[in-house]
Nucleic acid binder design. Structure first.
Length: 470
RNA sequence: GGCGGGGUAGCCAAGUGGUAAGGCACGGCUCUGCAAAAGCCGAAUGCGUGGGUUCGAUUCCCGCCCUCGCCUCCA
């Protein structure tokens, strides 16, 4: 089936543009995403970004592209070093804990882990090589203390991504006054000279022992894994400046090529309308949300549906409840429509799905318009439920809805609720079935209350009781 | 000061130069032993505000108000 061309907002041009991959065959799309710094558990704001990236990746796959996806883990910087020293742990061990935690949380949210997730520290030689190249090209210099800086004045395009004027940087609000050794105020560090606070963290280099600056890892890893020019580079909106701006400078100064064709930035998540911060006590991890009794897929739904990726998403517990209810309705419907499809003819004979899939394609192609997509889904739900109530939906039509939904869910990634009923709950339900058989309704109601007290809901249907999580 | 994003029903949120998707919440009804689930019906004469362009603007233009973010820690 032919699909529309995917239109994506490009934060470089500030316009929605059709995606045009470098691959001459138009099949392969290279995608690099700036991963987390692994010094702590990721919060839901981090995961809003990665859920959005996951949506992008799934959409690309859906549109028939072969996605070459790389995301690095930043496992060396001030925060990781400080954290590991506080815990009295080797850096690698310390960051390993949070790398693992991130992967687990991603799994909770049904985020597809990129095929390659390199750690920055496993690629120091590539970074050193890139820095040397920049020095050779006079785009970087070694300062008196042995650190290496990128020379912004050597790169006229500097500021192109963020539309910044270099002179405005000089009068910028926050400039580190301590960095006397820099030639220019906007120059940024490529290689940081070892200092005692770094402890045993450090690598040898032509400029002495030290460690890479933050930005160089993404340039080295992106180019190393995906080539000097890539299709899409993404991350949270806060990375635009300085991180991505600096990546462009480093990479393009070294290669003379266009580093990235399409920039994908995800807007931030707010909590109760405010920026998350420790002082406000509104920073939640994925684990915190789970502890409140929500599931990963409920959080995924909330993160996906709260707002399109390019806009701030306001996280609230009310929003989590809304998500939970809406998702339960989708689940209920999927189950019902699936049962109605039993006995349907072979899939190739199911024709009404194509129209539905077409509407999905169209909404998705418009810069991943998830809310339009959900609007379409809920319309299917209402229309088909009505038809089922009226007994006017054929098995073939039901199968068409199943087909369309399952296709849609390759993008949404909601999957299905896996329900394991505790023995205690099942036992109460069995007793209730007996009570109902003998029309002992008072006892039946008592048992329902007992089941609800355990956090479960019971529903009476023509086929008997059905249990679900409250 | 510079750059950018928002202001659409109680809450969340799409959208369009031609008369306001969807979700959640709420009320009534149908169904049900009662519930639940599902369905039906119900709310914006209106899309921050004042002008302008137009046959027609929430959608385009200008001014104003409010709000959020970024301007070298940050997804």
């Amino acid at each position: 089936m032919s699909r529309p061309t995917l239109q994506l907002y490009n934060s470089m041009s500030r316009a929605v543009e059709p995606l045009q991959p470098l691959d001459p065959a138009g099949k392969r799309v290279s995608l690099y995403v700036c991963g987390p710094t692994i010094y702590n558990y990721g919060h839901i704001g981090n995961f809003r970004t990665y859920v959005a990236v996951d949506l992008l990746k799934r959409a690309l796959t859906y549109f028939g592209y072969q996605v070459d996806h790389v995301m690095q883990f930043t496992d060396v910087d001030d925060k990781t070093i400080r954290g590991s020293r506080e815990k009295g742990m080797p850096l690698k061990e310390f960051t390993g804990i949070y790398r693992q935690a991130f992967l687990e949380d991603a799994k909770t949210l049904n985020i597809e882990i990129p095929a390659r997730t390199p750690n920055a520290t496993d690629h120091i030689p590539e970074m050193v090589e890139l820095i040397q190249k920049l020095i050779d090209k006079k785009s970087a210099y070694v300062s008196d203390d042995g650190s290496v800086y990128f020379r912004i004045s050597s790169f006229p395009k500097y500021g192109c991504l963020c539309h910044l004027d270099l002179s405005s940087l000089i009068s910028g609000a926050r400039v580190n006054q301590d960095e006397y050794e820099k030639e220019g105020i906007g120059d940024f560090v490529l290689w940081k000279k070892w200092v005692p606070a770094d402890g045993d963290v450090g690598w040898d280099s032509p400029w002495g022992k030290g460690r890479p600056g933050w930005h160089i890892e993404c340039s080295a890893l992106s180019m190393g894994h995906l080539g000097p020019e890539i299709d899409i580079h993404g991350g949270g909106t806060d990375l635009r400046f300085p991180h991505h701006e600096n990546e462009i400078a480093q990479s393009e100064a070294a290669t003379g090529l266009t580093f990235v064709r399409h920039w994908f930035h995800v807007e931030h998540l707010l909590v109760d309308g405010q920026k998350m911060s420790k002082s406000l006590g509104n920073m939640y991890t994925v684990r915190d949300v789970l502890e409140r009794g929500y599931t990963g897929r409920e959080l995924r739904y909330a993160l996906l549906s709260g707002a399109n990726y390019g806009k701030n998403l306001n996280f609230t517990w009310q929003g989590m409840d809304d998500a939970k209810t809406a998702l339960a309705r989708i689940d209920e419907w999927r189950k019902r429509i699936g049962e109605a499809a039993i006995g349907a003819p072979a899939l190739e004979e199911v024709t009404n799905a194509s129209e539905q899939i077409k509407s999905i394609d169209e909404a998705l192609s418009r810069d991943l318009n998830i809310n339009d997509l959900l609007g379409i889904l809920f319309t299917w739900i209402r229309v088909s439920n009505k038809a089922l109530d009226e007994k006017s939906l054929s098995a073939a039509q039901a199968a068409g809805y199943c087909l369309a939904y399952d296709s849609l869910d390759t993008i949404l990634g909601l999957g299905s609720a896996i329900i394991t009923i505790p023995a205690e709950v099942q036992s109460l339900a069995d007793q209730r079935a007996e009570a109902r058989k003998s029309k002992n309704f008072p006892q039946s109601d008592e048992l329902r209350k007992a089941i609800e007290a355990l956090g479960w809901k019971v529903k009476d249907t023509a086929k008997g009781q059905e249990l679900s999580r409250a």
